[in-house]
């Protein structure tokens, strides 16, 4: 019974914190105030102030965690919506995204291995370019840490949005296909949201790249990791 009340309190407070963050973001649109960042920071501050252990928080948090799987399944819907565009631009989008998946896995793996980090960290950094629920699932099956994987996903997402003007200039990305594939492959949902704000076409390509990237990375990451580690 006690667990039930704790769980319910956690779920209700998480909904309230999330709702508050979304409302704030609508008024103050900045990448640092994105709902996921704001909600996470507020929740951590609350846990620290009231000295609530993470395990206690997770009595309710695990119920929200359970819904991550169906949320990923739901990503099939936007992919289906943009199927006509996907058909037309299949080869460039698929090839670009596949190369992005390979580059992301190998560069993350080699750089962190070089710097001498543990396998737990390496396995958590490998799936960083895909959307959080998928990255966490990959990290979980390959011996990484799910929360750590989520943090690297945030670094790839926010980092990508911050540096994309320089990357675009350096690689001369000026076509919406190149830009969309780059944003979706490297910075998943956070990059896609940024693309969507600028241009519908670029945003749709980014959505496709983000979903394809999730599929590619989850298929090739385990094999490449075993091979290269």
């Amino acid at each position: 019974m006690n667990d039930f009340i704790i769980g319910l309190t956690v779920i209700v407070s998480t909904i309230l914190i999330y709702w508050g963050s979304v409302t704030f973001y609508k008024k103050c649109r900045h990448i640092y105030t994105a709902p996921i960042i704001l909600s996470t920071v507020v929740t951590i501050v609350v846990l620290l102030i009231f000295q609530i252990p993470y395990e206690t928080y997770m009595i309710g948090g695990q119920w929200i965690d359970h819904l991550l799987g169906p949320a990923v399944v739901g990503l099939a819907y936007p992919l289906y919506q943009y199927r006509d565009m996907l058909k037309k631009m299949l080869l460039p989008v698929v090839t670009g995204t596949f190369i992005g998946a390979v580059v992301g896995i190998t560069s993350g793996l080699f750089l962190s291995k070089w710097a001498g980090f543990s396998e737990l960290i390496i396995n958590s950094i490998v799936p960083k370019s895909v959307t959080t629920p998928v990255a966490m699932a990959i990290a979980d099956t390959s011996g990484g840490a799910m929360p750590l994987a989520a943090v690297f996903v945030m670094i790839a997402g926010i980092g990508g949005v911050l540096i994309h003007p320089f990357v675009w200039r350096y690689f001369r990305l000026n076509h919406y296909i190149g830009r969309g594939v780059g944003m979706g492959s490297a910075s998943h949902a956070i990059g896609t949201a940024t693309s969507m704000e600028r241009d519908d076409l670029e945003g749709s390509i980014s959505t496709i790249a983000m979903v394809l990237s999730a599929v590619f990375v989850s298929i090739i990451a385990p094999g490449l990791t075993v091979l290269l580690l």
């Binding site: 989008v93 090839t95 670009g96 992005g100 960083k128 350096y170 690689f171 190149g178 780059g182 492959s185």
Partner: peptide
């Protein structure tokens, strides 16, 4: 690594 992914995947697709 994110910059590499963005640049190379985008450049190839473009």
């Amino acid at each position: 690594s994110t910059a590499l992914v963005m640049g190379l995947s985008g450049a190839v697709a473009q």
